[in-house]
Write a protein that binds this DNA or RNA. Structure first.
Lengths: 230, 230
DNA sequence: GCTAGGACATGACAATTGTCAAGTTTGAGT
DNA sequence: ACTCAAACTTGACAATTGTCATGTCCTAGC
């Protein structure tokens, strides 16, 4: 039972925004609208994909549990972002699990609905590819970060991506748990704490309540400088 | 001027093998067939994508140069594998560069050809999504490795994926430079050397000529065990 | 056959990160 | 207001990895 506001968010999502209104209406009409509590599972790794998911509110994490039991966070999505496109259209098992990390509203588009619409208009395929490419690109960026930057530099880049403004002093508010941030950046919570300590000398001040300020230019310079110069 | 053998390899690629023969013929007829020397660039990061690429022979690496100048290897492709699908169909710039790391034969399918065929048959879109999903999946697997495994464990998994057999003693042949393997696994060449040393006690013996043997079961057990137990 | 350069191995050392073990802070529930 | 658990910080220590330097092996080119 979606509100108009929720529909508006869905329409603005990368997945749907370039499609003709008529198709979007069709999809929204047949979508499933659900709420999730913090910690609730949306789907599990190896489960077969039956829908594409669009986050309308809150935060959702995608993660993998390795054979050793360690959790690796793959990505974290919020309002207007979608995931599971490539998997849903092929009836293959999810390579990751999805869990709400805050109270969430999520729209599910059943894959048969998407597939049948795609047969009518191949443009749908392009939209799905667009969303999938965005994910590919963000994974590639993450790989580069992990392979070529230190922990503190990854934190600096994470803060940069959080802010709307792109230069000068900026207010920052961490969107979720530091434990989750640590996972997302591929480190232990203790290392994240130390990374924040290292950023203090360059003017980053974020207290326990997860808010603070930082200078974007200084951060960018730090993130892009050679690790061996420090 | 493709040989029949090359065409056969192209037909077996993940990208084309599930398409009707008629479409494959159309694509092969309009494809561009090229050779590359070791070290030659196939395309550069930020360049606009004009084609999808299918490797017919040799090895191609995709990599990014970070702002600091460090190179991060994203993936390495060989015979029957394709790349650039999601980018080519959207006229966006490549997020990575591509370079031949051995003498190569590569087939290029111009994106307009693919796009126009896709309008006739949406099934093409599904094939492209299939290939794109494979890349997504492999990037996710790589992220998990980097975030949850030690260097030596990543090497063990790399060796596992090289072999056809899945248990017992196996012959292994490293497909390319150790420098490149190190990049692919997110470490320095020196660390790779040390990782190989650590695998010696569990029966992995690979000499300078890049060939040797290893026990798959022992390797799998090593790769999946908790790093802290060692 | 000789030579030069690149790939690779190894040792010593420094920097980074994980691990373990305290302590503090915070917030939800009583 | 009190309590408890979880999130977070910090310190000490160990393990891993990067860096630098050196030496060996292999190969392409002369």
């Amino acid at each position: 039972m979606p509100h108009e506001a929720q529909k508006a968010i869905a329409r603005q999502s990368l997945l749907l925004r370039s499609l003709p209104d008529q198709h979007v209406d069709t999809l929204l009409r047949q979508a499933i609208w659900r709420q999730y509590d913090r910690g609730e599972t949306i789907f599990l790794q190896e489960e077969e994909a039956k829908a594409v998911h669009v986050v309308l509110a809150g935060w959702v994490k995608l993660f993998r549990i390795s054979p050793t039991g360690a959790e690796a966070v793959v990505s974290v999505f919020t309002r207007g972002e979608s995931f599971g496109e490539a998997v849903a259209l092929r009836n293959v098992p999810y390579p990751v699990s999805a869990e709400a990390v805050s109270p969430c509203e999520v729209m599910h588009i059943p894959s048969p609905v998407l597939l049948s619409l795609m047969k009518e208009d191949p443009e749908i395929g392009v939209s799905i590819l667009a969303a999938t490419f965005t994910h590919l690109h963000s994974l590639v960026a993450q790989l580069e970060q992990l392979k070529a930057q230190t922990g503190a530099q990854r934190v600096a880049e994470f803060l940069l991506n959080l802010c709307d403004c792109d230069s000068g002093q900026c207010e920052v508010e961490l969107p979720y748990d530091k434990m989750l941030i640590a996972g997302r950046l591929g480190m232990k919570p203790e290392s994240l704490s130390r990374a924040f300590s290292r950023l203090k000398p360059i003017g980053v001040r974020i207290d326990r309540n997860h808010a603070g300020i930082a200078d974007m230019d200084v951060l960018r310079n730090y993130a892009e400088s050679d690790p061996s110069e420090k």
